[in-house]
């Protein structure tokens, strides 16, 4: 939290760059000619960006953990302290979720500047954002414990997070994909999260299943993170 406070200005600035580029490139380029389910492409895009950004920003704590483990050796300070693995994992996950929530606020603010009004006070919208960031922050902790170097971490981001960011229903509706591709994409937690976030942002009732799917995935990843932190002792 201390570091977050210290870095907040540059963090917000860096969190604004990609969404701003997406909004300009896709929003203006597509214009109002493209509509999905009665919404402009910008209205469709912003909830997708929220889902994507809550995923990438919460997953970004893996880099912080890596730096703490491999370069600064601060992880050992936590390992030697009288705190359980649950406390450590929960702390890191909450740090990831905090980053995600800040980035979502940045996107919503940018969206407003672009004249897009969404139901962002809807608690179901924030619940979906929180669950999505919980999933990817937990996954980040687990994977950060498994990798042996910072380079491995970059590979994971390239092979797991980047494809998911583009295919998980963020930039286009999943039902427009071929059936076989849709089946694969439906396994991704981001697909369910973006569906719930988009529905809630449009003021609709998202249904229980995406929340259950994302929540359960989060619990699995959190348990995995606990196990990986324990194994990191070797």
């Amino acid at each position: 939290m201390l570091l977050l406070k210290r870095r907040i200005k540059r963090l917000i600035l860096s969190m604004s760059v990609s969404p701003l580029l997406y909004l300009i490139a896709f929003g203006y380029a597509m214009g109002k000619s493209v509509r999905f389910g009665g919404h402009t492409y910008l209205e469709f895009l912003i909830p997708g960006l929220v889902a994507m950004s809550s995923m990438t920003q919460s997953f970004a704590i893996a880099t912080d953990i890596n730096v703490a483990r491999f370069y600064w050796h601060i992880f050992e300070e936590f390992q030697a302290a009288p705190i359980g693995n649950v406390a450590y994992v929960a702390g890191e996950v909450l740090a990831g979720m905090s980053r995600a929530l800040i980035s979502v606020t940045v996107i919503l603010t940018l969206g407003m500047l672009f004249g897009v009004r969404l139901h962002c006070l809807n608690p179901l919208f924030w619940l979906a954002v929180a669950l999505n960031s919980f999933v990817f922050a937990s996954l980040a902790v687990a994977l950060a414990m498994l990798v042996k170097s910072h380079a491995d971490q970059s590979l994971l981001t390239s092979f797991v997070i980047t494809p998911m960011a583009f295919l998980g229903g963020t930039f286009f509706p999943v039902d427009r994909l071929p059936h076989w591709a849709g089946q694969i994409i439906w396994i991704l937690p981001l697909t369910h999260a973006s569906k719930a976030i988009r529905q809630a942002a449009f003021g609709n009732l998202p249904g229980l299943s995406p929340y259950l799917f994302v929540g359960l995935t989060g619990i699995i990843f959190f348990t995995m993170a606990l196990k990986c932190v324990d194994q990191a002792r070797d």
Partner: peptide
């Protein structure tokens, strides 16, 4: 956990948070 309360540890490598102050 109780065993960990008994000791302080100074590692061979510097494991301080370099971006924080001494006090922090």
């Amino acid at each position: 956990l109780r065993a960990k309360r008994q000791f302080g540890l100074v590692m061979q490598s510097i494991n301080l948070d370099q971006e924080l102050t001494l006090l922090e």
